[in-house]
Every structure is written in structure tokens, then in C-alpha cells.
Design a protein around this nucleic acid. Structure first.
Lengths: 234, 234
DNA sequence: CGACCCTGTTTACGTTGTAATCTTGTTTAC
DNA sequence: GTAAACAAGATTACAACGTAAACAGGGTCG
């Protein structure tokens, strides 16, 4: 007759560990995933996780599969393509569907980049990805190259080279002055960037932030598709 | 009259810390970079580094700039372009030069992906990158989009989605058998991948490893350039 | 000489991943 | 029914990490 903490404790298992890890990442980001933090969320000690996961690396690897699993089910829910030969529309839709799923877990791209292991879910995604291209008439060789060329873009994300957070302009005279000085120095040493910066700041009003991620992604995607189209018969 | 350890100790400075960190990374990879390991290499205690670097993050950020600095000096050493309007050749050469520099520090791509901060060296690289496109007749808008679209490829690397180490086939009957069973299951569930795997294993003799990184990179690069070419007048 | 500062050292703390061991509830064998 | 085996989670412990804080030595300048 011990005062149990409310509910009889549900048994742990791999799925529950993964789900908890996802929840932690959604809340605190990738670095927030800690054996202890995940265990806490489950009301359990850290070492308990090791019964269901061979280590943190294993957990992280498996999270990639979980996320790509979500992508796959999203793609499965897509209506069948009207014209299977229209590889361009079909592939585009598939990729953008993957993207929309990834946007739910903003930490996923970074995880995938570091823990890209070839699991069954990823294979299934690529299987249908390749099949879509094959239905469009591409040769196996070209498809293989295309898979490499797309890289992460196949899953709906493109790593940005630098994070351009809005610099959070504080309107102090000092900052203004410094910014102007910077601009002057910039124009001297890097004439082209200076021109572009000015050009961009003029039409900054069109997009809310500096750069529209979704639009940029689709631009890059279409460039890629155009380039691929040229290789249909080779 | 203390028994000094051989040579009078050279004073530490930011550059020496960075150089040591690069050396450690070249030897042990990115994870090998530790305040203590870098300090050891310099014959110094870990905390000494903090006089010249505000923390590990700062050190890592600065390493990106160091590497891109190497890229820039490599690009500076390039002969002036014969035809400045031939953006395609000029850009291609610039990118492949960057790539060859990055191949010296295999850890660099991963570092750049996680610590992509906009420093002066990166800006200089992009300045000349953009200027090359501008000389080819592209509009500022298109160039801006192109910079996003290229992403890391602009620096000569393309993140691979999965590391496909050669699986290091051990020729046991058990493994053989398992591999065959895998293949069978594969063919059922993922018909396309099965086809492609077979196709690839047939012509695997042409390239030494499974996939030729350099060739794949250049393929993707050319796809991108083709796609861009279509946007010259827009 | 003494005040100062520059640079590297020492000590210490909190956080992390995980090895090893222990505890306890449940299942199985006889 | 009891003992033996097992499973799942808790405890304890440790090494490696980043870094804050206080300290020490030697140089410079008054």
C-alpha cells in the first residue's frame, strides 16, 4: 500500500522514447535533447532509456527515420498523379509535401544533415522519388546522378549558408552611424555586395522578412528541375 | 634558473590558436576539437585560450573564416578570366577552386553547415561570386536568388544525404545469404531501388568506389548552371 | 621602488553520455 | 507454492567537456 504517483506507470518502449525526444526537440531545439531531459519528460531516470535505445546516437539516428516516416505518410496521402509521365509536377508536389512536413519540426533538417543514415523509411522515400523520375522517361544513370544532385533538396530543405536573422536594428544614432561607416567601407572593398544590398533594401517591402524562405526554395528547386529537363534523353 | 622546457615559449595569439585548432581537426576530425586538445597542442592549459578566443563557439566560428580565407587566396591566385562575359566558365572555375581547397580540410563542410556566420571573408567570396554573375548579364534579383539556390554548392561542396561508406563486405556465407534475402525483400517493397541497385552494381567497375564524389558534384553543378542559364533575361 | 597590466595557471563547478550495479515486480519451472 | 530466472527501471559512479573565478609571475611605466 504505497502511495503511487497517481497512475500506474505505462511501460516504456522505443516508440515512447522517440516520441518524447521529438517533443523535447520541438520545445527546446536539437541541443535540448538530452538523455536526462527526455527521461524527465517520461517521468523516468536517464539510464532507463538505455533499455530501448542503445545510446544517444542510436536515438538521434532513429529520430531521422521517425521524421521521414511522417514525410512518407504525408506523401502516401497525396492523390494519385493524373499523368504519371508528368514527372515534373509529380516530383515537385512530392518534394513540397516533404517540405511542409519538415517545417513542423524545425530541428529536423539539421538532424538529417548530421545523422543521415540510410534506413528503411529513407529508402522508401527514394524508391518513390526515383520511380517518379523513371515514369518520366529518365535513364537509371541520370536518376542516380539526380539523386546525388538534389541531396537534401529531395527532402524539401536546402541548407542556408549563413543564418541571416533580422539584425534587430536598434535605432540608436551610434548604430546608424556605424551602419553608414560600414556601408562606406563595404562599397570600397566589395562593390558588388554593396550594390546588391542597396538594391535589396529598396524592395525589401515586397517580402516581409529579408528573404522569403519558401520562395527561395522553390526558385532553387525549379532551377534544378529545368537543368534536369535538359538531360531527359541522355 | 628554472629548467625551461627547451624553447622560450612563443606568445600565444588568436592566429596560433586557430592554426592549432585546424591542425587538431585535420588529425582527429571536428569532434576532436576540444579546448583541452587545442591547448595541449600548443603546450598550454585550456583556460589560456580564453584570452584570445571568447569561447569554443567563437573559435569554431572563426575557423570558418580561416578556411574561407584559404579559399579566397586560392581564387585570387587564379589567372584573370579571358572573357569576363563568360560567366559560366568563370563561375565554374571559381567554385571548383573553392572545392579543391575544402578537400584539404574534410571537416570544413560540416563546420560551415553548423557555424555559417557572415564574416568578411565570406562576404568577399560572395562579392566576387556575384560580380562574376553580374558580368555575365544577370539581374540583381536573379543573382540574389541564385545565391540562395546555390547554397553550400557555391563554396564547392554539396551535403550528402547519407554517408554511404563501402559496407565493407565480409564474404561469409551467412552474410551472402542475408544479402540475398535483403535483395528479395527489397525487390518486393521497393521495386525501383532494387532495379537501380542492380544497375549500379553492374557498372560499379567503372568508378572505383560506389559513387565518384567529384563527378557527382560537377553533375549537380552543371544542372544548376543550366537551370540558371534559362534565367539570363528575367 | 611600487602600481599596474598582460598572460598563462590553478582550482573548481555544472552538464553531459554512459558503464556497472542494484532493486523490484513478474513470469516460469518444478 | 516456492524457487529460480528474468525484465525494467533506479542508483551510483565516473570521465570528458566548457568555462567561471581567483591567482601568479613577469614585464612596463610612473
Amino acid at each position: 500500500m504505497v502511495t503511487e504517483t497517481q497512475h500506474r506507470r505505462r511501460p516504456l518502449n522505443r516508440g515512447r522514447v522517440q516520441a518524447a525526444a521529438v517533443q523535447v526537440a520541438d520545445r527546446d531545439g536539437l541541443k535540448g535533447i538530452t538523455m536526462r531531459s527526455v527521461a524527465d519528460l517520461l517521468g523516468v531516470e536517464a539510464m532507463a532509456l538505455y533499455r530501448h535505445v542503445s545510446g544517444k546516437n542510436d536515438l538521434l539516428d532513429s529520430l531521422v527515420e521517425v521524421v521521414i516516416g511522417e514525410i512518407n505518410t504525408a506523401c502516401d496521402a497525396l492523390p494519385a498523379p493524373e499523368d504519371p509521365a508528368d514527372w515534373r509536377t509529380n516530383l515537385r508536389r512530392r518534394i513540397l509535401t516533404a517540405r511542409s512536413t519538415l517545417l513542423v519540426h524545425r530541428w529536423a533538417p539539421a538532424l538529417i544533415s548530421t545523422h543521415g543514415t540510410m534506413g528503411p523509411e529513407l529508402m522508401r522515400y527514394f524508391d518513390e522519388f526515383g520511380a517518379t523520375l523513371a515514369a518520366g522517361g529518365f535513364s537509371l544513370d541520370t536518376i542516380h546522378h539526380a539523386l546525388h544532385a538534389f541531396g537534401p533538396r529531395a527532402l524539401g530543405f536546402a541548407p542556408e549558408l549563413f543564418e541571416l536573422e533580422a539584425p534587430a536594428v536598434t535605432e540608436t544614432d551610434l548604430d546608424e552611424q556605424a551602419a553608414l561607416a560600414d556601408m562606406a567601407a563595404l562599397a570600397e572593398e566589395m562593390p558588388f555586395l554593396a550594390r546588391m544590398a542597396q538594391h535589396l533594401s529598396h524592395e525589401a517591402s515586397t517580402t516581409l522578412g529579408w528573404c522569403d524562405d519558401q520562395a527561395e526554395f522553390e526558385f532553387g528547386l525549379d532551377v534544378m528541375l529545368d537543368g534536369l529537363e535538359k538531360r531527359l534523353n541522355s
